[in-house]
Structures are given as C-alpha cells and as structure tokens.
Simulated scan of single mutants.
Amino acid sequence: MKTLIIDDERLARNELRRLLDNFPKIQVIGEAADANEALPMIEELEPDLLFLDIQMPGKNGFELLQSIEGKTPEVIFTTAYDEYAIKAFEFNALDYLLKPVELARLSDAINRIEEEQHTTDSTGTNPTNGSLSKVLGENDQVFVKDGEKCWFVKLGKVRLFESMGNYVRLYFDDQKPLVLKSLNALEDRLNPSTFFRANRKHIINLQWIEKIEPWFSGGLLVTLRGGDKIEISRRQAIRFKDLLSL
C-alpha cells in the first residue's frame, strides 16, 4: 500500500517510518513537511494512504484534504491533540492516532486498513471512496467524546443507541456517553444487518439480543444482554420478523 507521511516535525516522521517498518504491506513512498509539499506529491505519486498531521504551518490537515483534486487517499490522522478527533472522523478517517504513536495502536490502524481492503476485494467496490456515507459495521472503531472523557470503541460492543433530542446516547460496557447527532443520521451510517431501528427512539444491536417476547398491539419486547428492555413497534416488528426469518 503506497503511503505518504505528512508532518511538519522531522523527528515524528522518522519515528513513524521506523514503526511502519514492522508492516511489510505498507510502502512509504515519500514524506512531506506541509501541504505545499504534499499536494504535488499526492497528485504525482497517487498514494493509497496518508499518515497526516493536523496542525502544520500553512494549511492544516483538514484543509489539505479539501484541496486534493480527484480521488482522496485513505487517511490516518496523527496528532498530539485529541480535540480534533470528531472532525477527523467527519472526514472519514480510518483512524486517529495520538502522538507519540504506539506500536500497538498503529497495528490496530493497519488491521483496519486490511479489513477495508478485504471488503473492497469481496464486493468489488470501495465503501469509503472519500464519501461521508460510508456504512459502519460491527468491526469499525469510532471515536466517542463526552465532556472530558474519550473512548475508541468498536461498534460491535455498542448494544443500544437511544435518541435524546439532538443527541444520541450510546450504551457499551458500563458507559453511556452522549454524542451530538440525530438518531436518523446515525441510522443512515449503520449496517442494517447488524443494527436495527426498533422504534422512534432506539436502534439495537441484533447480536446483543438475549430474549424476544410478544408485546402490546402486535409489537415485540426484546431483552438485550445486560438487561436493557426495548420495545419494537408494531410496524418495525414486521420488518424485524422478515429480517430474521429463514
């Protein structure tokens, strides 16, 4: 995978290149210290992947991506600051690595690249292709920030999404953070084979269902592992049965 490292700190570039030596599939084809250096290299070398710093002299990492004409490479952001993480994932980043980059976290990021490539090879299409409408599945890892707390969580661990006005509450482990997003917008991003819209307020992870019971007016009551009880509305119960029936 042809890779460019873009970072204004020479020591950071050197350290990342050293760490990437552990991954034979990653071929570092060049380095750049800022957007002015990087843009012509991206046009000429057509890299598959960018390791991209955010704060740089001149254009920052986000502005660099917006300046790319044609197909945008996959992106893994590298930065010393965590406050940009939500915006990074709005740019469909594969991952967001905090400096100093640790080998274990870098390995997780490379594994995600391989998962994306496997999906591309098996479907014949690239689900990311620079679009903000990428469908997220159980193996996708997302950044969640609520106040001063931050998590990187695999969506497969999220058992329930609950609408709270303009926010959505995520339920995973013993955590219940809020994110600024509507449930409808979130539903458009989630793989419907794993995440099911149970009613106006809830999306459930089908793999977490422990028990299903008949409920009022033709609806269903599902119990998730952990004890959460969610009503599936009558209309959604029809879809639910169709989805899970042989």
Results as ranks from 00 to 15, higher is better:
K71Y: 03
A93L: 02
R159H: 07
L11M: 11
K241I: 15
L243N: 09
I204G: 05
K87I: 03
L220I: 10
V153N: 04
L170M: 13
K154F: 15
G70L: 02
G30Q: 02
F91W: 09
L52E: 04
Y81G: 06
N14S: 13
D174H: 12
T72V: 10
A12R: 05
P24E: 14
V75A: 06
T119F: 09
T125K: 14
N191A: 13
Q66P: 08
L224I: 08
G227C: 11
L243C: 05
Q141V: 14
V222P: 04
L243I: 04
F62H: 01
E162F: 07
E90S: 10
P127F: 05
A38Q: 02
K145D: 01
V135N: 01
E69W: 00
E44F: 02
Y84F: 15
T3V: 03
I54Y: 02
K2A: 02
I86N: 01
V168C: 07
L221D: 03
L224G: 08
L183G: 05
D21A: 15
K211V: 09
I54M: 09
D53L: 11
K87P: 00
F91Y: 15
I76C: 00
N191L: 11
P192Q: 05
E213F: 12
G165M: 04
L136D: 12
F195S: 04
L180K: 10
E213H: 11
E162Q: 14
T194V: 13
R234T: 14
W208R: 04
Q236V: 06
A33V: 07
N111R: 12
F196P: 01
W208L: 00
L103I: 13
D53Y: 03
I238Y: 12
I6L: 09
T78Q: 08
D48G: 13
Q27I: 08
G58E: 06
V158P: 00
K211D: 14
I209Y: 08
T123H: 06
D228Q: 14
S107N: 13
L65C: 13
F51Y: 08
K71P: 03
T79L: 07
S182M: 10
N111S: 15
P214Y: 09
L50M: 02
R18I: 06
D140H: 07
P214C: 08
I26E: 04
